[in-house]
C-alpha cells in the first residue's frame, strides 16, 4: 500500500542555551492509510517532536516529510495552516477545547474554518456526537464535561474536518482507566469502520496493547517497528 506519510532522514536539533539537543536523529518512517499506530518510548525520546513534525506544527532541521505526495517540511506558514485544516486532525493530551463554546460548537468550529454551510456543520457535528455516544452533551461547555467526555469531543472535532489522518499526543494521559478503555475502543472502531488513520504518541500500555503497529523511539531514533496482525 502506498505511504500516506513518508518522513525521510528527518533531524530536529534544538539549541537550548547554545548546547545543541538532537530531539530527532536522522529518522525515516512511512505510515500507510488506515493504520492504527502508536509511537512509544520513554519521556524525552522525541515522540511529541516527531508527531509535531508529521503534523506540520514544527519543521525539521533537515529531511523531508511528504503527506500524500506533498512536501510539507518547507511549506509557508499560511499554506501549512490550511493544509493542517483540511488534512490533519489533532487530539491533544489536555483536550484543548475552546472553553466558551459548547461541545457541538467546538466540533462545528473546525468546519466553520473550512467554510462549510451552517446546515452541513450542525448535521455533521450532531452525527459525530452520536458516534461518540455523547449526543446528550451537545449543549454543554467543556467545563461541564468529564475528562473522558471532553476527549471524545476532541476526537469528534479531529474527525469533523474529514482529515487524511489523526494525530493524538498522549490522548489518554489525563483519563481514568474506564475512560481510557472507552476512548480506545471508540477510536479503534472508527479506524476499523471508517478506515481513519490514527497515530498516537503514548507511554500508556493500554494504548500500546490496542495499537496494530508499535514504533519504539529512543533518543530520537527508531529502535523497533512492530506490526501486529
Amino acid at each position: 500500500m502506498a505511504a500516506l506519510i513518508k518522513a525521510t532522514n528527518i533531524t530536529k536539533v534544538y539549541h537550548k542555551t547554545s548546547v545543541p539537543v538532537h530531539a530527532i536523529n536522522n529518522l525515516s518512517v512511512e505510515i500507510a492509510e488506515g493504520e492504527f499506530t502508536a509511537i512509544v518510548g520513554p519521556s524525552g525520546c522525541g515522540k511529541t517532536t516527531l508527531l509535531n513534525i508529521l503534523g506540520g506544527l514544527d519543521q525539521p532541521t533537515s529531511g523531508t516529510v511528504m503527506i500524500d505526495g506533498v512536501d510539507i517540511s518547507r511549506m509557508k506558514d499560511s499554506d501549512l495552516i490550511d493544509f493542517r485544516l483540511h488534512n490533519i486532525g489533532f487530539v491533544f493530551q489536555a483536550y484543548n477545547l475552546i472553553p466558551v463554546l459548547t461541545a457541538l460548537e467546538n466540533i462545528e468550529f473546525i468546519m466553520l474554518l473550512q467554510k462549510r454551510s451552517r446546515k452541513e456543520r450542525v448535521a455533521r457535528a450532531k452525527e459525530l456526537l452520536e458516534q461518540m455516544n455523547i449526543a446528550d452533551k451537545a449543549d454543554h461547555r467543556p467545563g461541564e464535561l468529564s475528562g473522558g467526555q471532553q476527549q471524545r469531543v476532541a476526537v469528534a472535532r479531529a474527525l469533523a474536518s474529514n482529515p487524511r489522518f489523526i494525530l493524538a499526543d498522549e490522548p489518554t494521559a489525563n483519563l481514568d482507566s474506564v475512560s481510557t478503555e472507552n476512548l480506545l475502543d471508540l477510536m479503534a472502531r472508527i479506524n476499523r469502520e471508517q478506515k481513519a488513520t490514527f497515530i498516537f504518541s503514548t507511554h500508556d500500555q493500554r494504548v500500546m496493547d490496542k495499537a496494530r503497529r508499535l514504533i519504539r523511539l529512543v533518543d530520537g531514533a527508531i529502535v523497533s517497528d512492530d506490526v501486529r496482525s
Binding site: 506558514d77 495552516i81 493542517r84 485544516l85 484543548n96 472535532r157 474536518s161
Partner: peptide, 14 residues
C-alpha cells in the same frame, strides 16, 4: 489557546 487554534487550522489573520 491561540497556539491550539492555529494548530487545528485557524489562519492567523482570522
Amino acid at each position: 489557546e491561540f497556539g491550539v487554534m492555529i494548530a487545528v487550522g485557524m489562519r492567523r489573520f482570522r
